[in-house]
Write a protein that binds this DNA or RNA. Structure first.
Lengths: 313, 313
DNA sequence: CCTTGTAATACTCACATAGAGCATAATTAG
DNA sequence: CTAATTATGCTCTATGTGAGTATTACAAGG
C-alpha cells in the first residue's frame, strides 16, 4: 500500500525585483484547465531519475520557463489529503516548495512564463505607501463579520487572531505574518481559492491550486530571513547604489526605510563596500556604486539589513 | 512511473529539557538491523489514511513511544536519492521531519523509547562550560587535515568554510550553524554515518540512518527560533523561577547567559509575569514563581529571549 | 542569637545602536 | 546662475546590552 497513489510535486517561488516591484514568476495553466491561470512552475519528482529534490526542481523550472536557477532554498512541504490538487493528477500529491531568488535581467523567459507583481496577489502586504486601503475598506469589515458568524464561545479567539495577524486592535503590524494572514483570509472564505462563494471579495488576483498559499509562505520566509542573512544581494546586480539597494529591500519587506540610517546600517555594518566609481544618474548628485562584501559572512554571526518597526517617510 | 517505488517517511525530533540537559527522544532500532541503535521515531505516511502529514506523524509517535505530542512544527524534507535509508524499505524514501517540544514530566514512555542527551550526539555544540575540548583536540586537527587533503585549488575554500562554521580563525562561533557543522564533519568523513572509515574519530555517539543530520537541523532551528518566538515555554512547567527558565534557555542554546540581564530581558520584555508566590528552594533566598504571559504575542512582533554573543559566567 | 553561605533581586554605568532630523555637497534642467 | 534633486555627513536622543556592585531573604551550623 505504501508505494501506490502517491507522488511528489516540486514547485518554485521564483522572486526577483525590478523597478521597485517584487516579481514572482508564473506559468499559464489556463489550457491545463485550471480555474485560475497563474501557477507556479511545478512538476512531479522522478523518483528514479532526479538525484535530489532540488535538481528535480531545477529541471522543471528549466523546462517550463527556460531559466537556470541560482539561489534556491527549501520552503515547506504541503501534504494535506484534502488539499486542492490539479485535476489532471490522480492520487495523493505531496508538494515540496522552494524559494528561489534571481536577477531578472539574467533571464530569457520561455513561452508561457511571465513575471507578476507579488503584491497583485497579496495586496494587503504592501505598506510602502502607508496602510493599504484594502485592509480598512474590505478586510477588516469582512473579518469582523467572520468573527460574529462564529459560535459564541469561539468569537473571543477569532477576534484576537484577527487583531494579531492584521495588527488591528492594540497589536502592531508584523510584516512577517504573511502566511498567517493568508490562511486567516482563506478560513474566513475571503479568497476565491477557498471555494466559489465570496469570490474576489478582496479584489485581488488568485492563483491556481494552493499556489497562493505557497507564495505567502515564501514571502514570509523571505521577509524574515532578510533581517539576518544577506539575501538581498541575490536579486541585486553586482554593483548598485545604496538607494537602489534600499528600494529593493523596501519592495520585499513592504515598508519604507529611513534613508540615512539604512545607509549607515549597511555601510558601517560591513555589508557593502564602495567601488570608488559613481553611477551615471538621472537628476541629483551622482551616487557611489557599491558591491556586496562577501567577507561579512565570516565576520558576523547574522548579517542582514535589520528592518525597523515601520516607517512613513 | 510516478507512483511507483516511492514512499514518504515521517520522523520527529522530540525535545525536552530536564535538569539542565536537553533531551531528544529516541527509539531502539538494534533489532531492526540498523548499525546504530538510536533512531528518531519514524514511520511511513499512509497516503490513503493520514489526513495530514502532521497527523500521520503524531500517530507514529504515539505508536512507538506512547506519547501524545503537543507543539509540533515542520522542519525539513530530506529526499536525496543516495541518502541512507533503512535496509528494510525498498525504493525511494522522501522523509519529512518535524520538531516537537514537550515537558518531559508529561510523558509516560513506551518500551523502546528513551530520552538521550542531545549533546551526546553533538558534543561540540555545548559551550556552557566554555569551549568544548573536542574542538581543539580532535575536530580542528582533523579538519585541518581535510583541508590539506583537498585539491590545491579547493583548499582556500575549504579552510574558509572550516573557519566560518566552527568559528576558528577570525570568525566567531555562531550557535545556529549546527547543521553546517554536522555536514562539514560528514563531508570530512569524521562521523561514523558517513561510512565505516574514520569511525568514531570524535568519540561521539552516532544515530541510525541520517537521523543525526535531522537532529542537527532541529537544534539549529530551535536555537534560531528561541530568539524571536516564545518557544522555551513549551518545555517549561506552567510556573517556574527565572533561574530555571534561564537554565533551560542555556541548555538549548548551549551558552551561558548573564543572570541579571536575562531577568531584565524576560521581565521588562513582558514575556513573563510574577505570580506573587515563591518557590520552596534549596539554599539561598526563595525565588518568585513566574508564568508565561501569552499576551506578549499580540503586543510585540517577535518576542523571544534574544541571546548574547557568548558569555563566560 | 549570630555567622556564613547561597541565591534572588535591585541599581548603576559605559557603550553601542536605532530613530529621527538638519546641513552640506554634487549634479542636471532650465 | 538658479532651482530641483539626490547623495552624503553629522548630531542628538532614546533605548538596549554587557557587565559589575550592592542589598535582601532565606537555611544551616555554631
Amino acid at each position: 500500500m505504501s508505494g501506490t497513489d502517491l507522488s511528489i510535486g516540486l514547485s518554485a517561488v521564483i522572486v526577483s525585483v525590478t523597478d521597485e516591484v517584487p516579481h514572482v514568476l508564473t506559468v499559464d495553466r489556463a489550457e491545463a484547465g485550471e480555474e485560475h491561470r497563474h501557477a507556479l512552475p511545478f512538476g512531479p519528482l522522478d523518483p528514479a531519475g532526479d538525484r535530489t529534490l532540488e535538481l528535480g526542481l531545477r529541471g522543471w523550472v528549466r523546462q517550463q520557463t527556460g531559466l537556470e536557477l541560482g539561489y534556491v532554498e527549501q520552503l515547506y512541504t504541503f501534504g494535506d489529503r484534502d488539499r486542492i490538487v490539479s485535476a489532471s493528477v490522480g492520487g495523493r500529491v505531496i508538494s515540496v516548495a522552494y524559494l528561489a531568488l534571481m536577477r531578472e535581467s539574467d533571464a530569457e523567459l520561455g513561452r508561457q512564463a511571465e513575471w507578476n507583481d507579488v503584491y497583485s496577489f497579496l495586496r494587503w502586504e504592501d505598506w510602502r505607501r502607508g496602510r493599504p486601503s484594502v485592509i480598512d475598506e474590505r478586510i477588516a469589515p469582512a473579518l469582523g463579520q467572520w468573527v460574529m458568524n462564529g459560535p459564541p464561545e469561539e468569537q473571543r479567539d477569532r477576534r484576537e487572531r484577527v487583531e494579531i495577524t492584521f495588527g488591528l486592535g492594540r497589536s502592531q503590524w508584523d510584516g512577517e505574518r504573511v502566511l498567517e494572514r493568508y490562511e486567516l483570509l482563506y478560513e474566513a472564505g475571503l479568497v476565491p481559492e477557498a471555494g466559489a462563494s465570496h469570490s474576489d471579495a478582496l479584489g485581488t488576483r488568485a492563483m491556481a491550486l494552493d499556489h497562493r498559499r505557497i507564495l505567502a509562505t515564501a514571502l514570509a520566509r523571505l521577509r524574515g530571513k532578510l533581517k539576518y542573512r544577506p539575501l538581498v544581494f541575490e536579486v541585486m546586480p553586482p554593483e548598485f547604489t545604496l538607494l537602489q539597494l534600499q528600494k529593493v529591500v523596501e519592495a520585499l519587506s513592504g515598508v519604507r526605510l529611513h534613508k540615512q540610517n539604512f545607509r549607515r546600517l549597511v555601510d558601517r555594518g560591513g555589508l557593502v563596500e564602495g567601488t570608488g566609481r559613481v553611477d551615471a544618474r538621472t537628476g541629483g548628485r551622482p551616487a557611489e556604486l557599491f558591491r556586496f562584501r562577501r567577507e561579512v559572512v565570516r565576520e558576523r554571526p547574522s548579517p542582514g539589513v535589520g528592518l525597523p518597526s515601520l516607517r512613513s517617510v
